Amino acid sequence: MWKAYAKAGLTANPDEPDLAVYATDPALKLLRDGLAGYQAKGQVFKGEYGSTPSAVEATPAAAPTTVIIADCLDSTNFLVYKASGEKADDIPGGRRSTSATVKSQGGVWRVTSFAVREKGTC
């Protein structure tokens, strides 16, 4: 999901088709709304997220349909730029504790919700 979001951020495209491959509402809406906000301000973002997700819970245990994933998302090399190519600000990214709920829907796993905590939480 984060790679699709980074790809969409290159043009701040809330309609990037890859987003729906990895996320569904309400997570998908949250991603799209964020991108639309950047687009409205004439901003894009560039860089890569560092991510090492791990499943911390799966239910039901015998045949999981819901998995909770924990991560420490590293946005150190992920920055916001103006359309002109200049940095939008000098605020560096950082490491943030994240969690996501992933559900199997029709045999396809997608993120249904996620939380990204403030910088320095992991």
Rank of each mutant, 00 (worst) to 15 (best):
T101P: 02
P17G: 13
G94I: 06
L10Q: 13
G37K: 07
F114M: 04
A36N: 03
W109S: 12
S113A: 01
K119G: 15
A23W: 00
V108T: 11
V56I: 12
S75E: 10
G47I: 11
L30N: 10
A4Q: 13
D90N: 07
V102P: 00
A8H: 07
I69Y: 03
V21R: 15
L30D: 05
P17S: 14
G47V: 09
Q39T: 04
A55I: 12
K46L: 12
P64W: 02
R117S: 14
T65E: 12
I68P: 05
K46Q: 14
G120Q: 10
E48V: 15
K87S: 12
G34E: 02
E118L: 14
A100M: 08
P14D: 05
A100R: 02
L28K: 00
E48C: 13
F114P: 03
I68Q: 10
R32E: 04
S84K: 11
T66Q: 09
S113N: 00
A23F: 00
T59G: 05
W109M: 10
T52L: 14
V44P: 06
L73H: 05
P14K: 03
G34K: 00
L19F: 02
A115D: 13
V67P: 01
A115K: 13
V67K: 00
A62W: 04
T66W: 00
A63G: 11
D90L: 11
C122W: 08
A4E: 10
V44C: 10
D33R: 09
S104G: 06
A100Y: 01
D33E: 11
V111M: 00
A20N: 03
D18I: 13
L31F: 08
K41H: 03
L19N: 03
G37D: 07
T11I: 09
P92N: 01
A61T: 08
A83N: 12
D74V: 11
G50N: 04
M1N: 13
A55H: 05
S84P: 11
A40Q: 14
L19Y: 01
V56G: 11
T11Y: 06
P92G: 07
K87G: 09
V102K: 00
Y49A: 13
P14F: 05
